[in-house]
């Protein structure tokens, strides 16, 4: 009959969007958007929907072992477009096997890659559909 006091090892506020983003604020992050874009910037503010304010943002383009940066400035990202945020280890970030290239160079390569991937996904979706799987209604790169 005795219900007793339920132990609660973690306070409820730990399980909020705010708490998750809290220690990412003022940190250098990589933000991957649903369209596959990668932004690198400092998270300055957020809200309960994980809408984000980024500062000193650069968009980093990748293609195989090349990368290029496009300075972008301040971003307000609507939360739904975010795939993930990752905190960058400042010590490790420069130890990359990637090589800096010009934006144009990568841009072209990336375009081709993304087209290819879209093609692939389309094919996959068709195949899955034929097997009775409904494709995810949107392509996430």
């Amino acid at each position: 009959m005795d219900v007793g006091i339920l132990p609660e090892p973690l306070p409820p506020q730990v399980f909020t969007t705010g708490a998750q983003l809290l220690d990412l604020t003022d940190k250098k992050l990589v933000i991957v958007l649903r369209d596959g874009r990668k932004l690198i910037g400092v998270l300055r503010s957020y809200d309960q929907y994980a809408n984000l304010v980024l500062q000193d943002t650069v968009e980093r383009l990748y293609s195989q072992n090349l990368y290029a940066d496009v300075p972008r400035g301040v971003y307000i990202v609507r939360g739904e477009n975010v795939l993930l945020l990752g905190e960058i280890d400042l010590d490790k970030e420069d130890d990359t096997p990637l090589q800096l290239a010009s934006v144009d160079e990568i841009y072209d390569a990336q375009k081709a890659e993304s087209a290819q991937k879209k093609q692939r996904e389309k094919k996959k979706a068709r195949k899955l559909h034929s097997l009775g799987f409904e494709a995810e209604n949107e392509l996430i790169l």
Partner: peptide
Amino acid sequence: LSRYNGLMTPSDKNFITRIQ
């Protein structure tokens, strides 16, 4: 990076957490 640190104050963060 820290030049604008604290742009979002603890109270702002508190506020959002409280909303949630």
